[in-house]
Design a protein around this nucleic acid. Sequence first.
DNA 1: CCAATAGTGTCTATCAGACATTATCTA
DNA 2: TAGATAATGTCTGATAGACACTATTGG
Lengths: 237, 237
Amino acid sequence: MDEKQFLAEYDKRQYDSPLVTVDAVMFTYHEECLKVLLVGRSNHPDQGKWGLPGGFVDLERDSTLEDTVRRKLKEKTGIEPPYLEQLQSIGNAKRDKRGWSVTIAYTALMAYQSCEAHIATVTDAQWLALDVVSQMDLAFDHQAIIGLARERMRQKALYSIVPAYALPEAFTLPELQHLHEVLIGKSLQKKSFRRRIEQAELLIDTGEKRSEGGRPAALYRMKQASGAYTFVRNLED
Amino acid sequence: MDEKQFLAEYDKRQYDSPLVTVDAVMFTYHEECLKVLLVGRSNHPDQGKWGLPGGFVDLERDSTLEDTVRRKLKEKTGIEPPYLEQLQSIGNAKRDKRGWSVTIAYTALMAYQSCEAHIATVTDAQWLALDVVSQMDLAFDHQAIIGLARERMRQKALYSIVPAYALPEAFTLPELQHLHEVLIGKSLQKKSFRRRIEQAELLIDTGEKRSEGGRPAALYRMKQASGAYTFVRNLED
DNA sequence: CCAATAGTGTCTATCAGACATTATCTA
DNA sequence: TAGATAATGTCTGATAGACACTATTGG
């Protein structure tokens, strides 16, 4: 039998295969704390619980897994996030009551402001502070997935400025530093923090300032490639 | 309708879902070069081509994705690899002629010697040098997956001694250094390389030596947790 | 002895940590 | 002016790179 004939006769329905979903851990930074986007589940299973935005791949509409995530996130936030990266896939027989299930989990970052208006119009999606979320009973294994995403972001905070995608396009260095401090879980030396960013020329000074009650801080925005930059030397853990 | 009833009536066959496979990029180090384990495909699609070991999740036998990979690798090599880590999932409508397909790709490392005898007994699996493989026409997108795995290992060589899992249990420092050099693609200062490993106390001196024509080199083995250790400062790229 | 390979001594350069000092705003 | 926050100066310590040197084997 040649391949053409094989493919013509192939019917995947005769093989049992796992459920396939994607889930996104969307972080932002607002009011000095890390928040994650949760969605109220309106369907079984785990109806009524909060969980991560995500869902089934639509074989017609999505041509890649990332299409699926972007589509799901756009439904909830109104926009596509400026940072989206695959986190990890979790697949086992127990995580979903409907049966053997695989989820491809993503981490995403966006500014609180860029979807504030959209979120306000819906009741089934909201930003929740991470320390509140960790006390909640979430759907499926979403609590564990959030834990994985958080740990990954913590690592990134040690060797990159990826967390900056959780801020508005223009931000101050003290603001970025505080975000890193929240992620890493300890305070940082501002001199060290500024020095490495300056030296790597990762940010552009917009020339504008923002005042918080003292000396106004310079507003910066990221250069195009800055998300991909990694420092050779990590901040201390 | 309550959840119990929902689950009783749920039939996943009514929803179209992607094919789900796992694939493993198994590296080893032998005769001064990096090799990857390839398997000759005996079935359509891409029958006759070489590809990565892997296959469909067996919903009955496997209770996690990792079970699937370990099972597939054991079939080909006779043993389970000492290092196995999820690499990335690739899912899109085009990568498999049978239709929308997701593969969860893993990177694995093992010593050449530990499956040499088993591999010799089969004709459909063999170790191939990476620079040979890169010229081959492999099944599906496996060439690209190998590229991803290689890049990940290159990164790990800069900040960890994970590559040591591609060596026999006892190995010499010059041997490990050369493996890192092959991965990174440039030569390293032996002083720097030794110093960081010594200082982090990652290896145990077995007391034995191995001679290669000059002064005999000390044989070491990894401590238990050494694979998880990351240096704060990377080797230069 | 020489050739080959393993391993050390030691200097320099880089960069994060620490912390004191200066700058610039508002009330 | 004081209080607050932003930004800089400068010293120390850790560690990677460079490279010369010594050590241990086999001919």
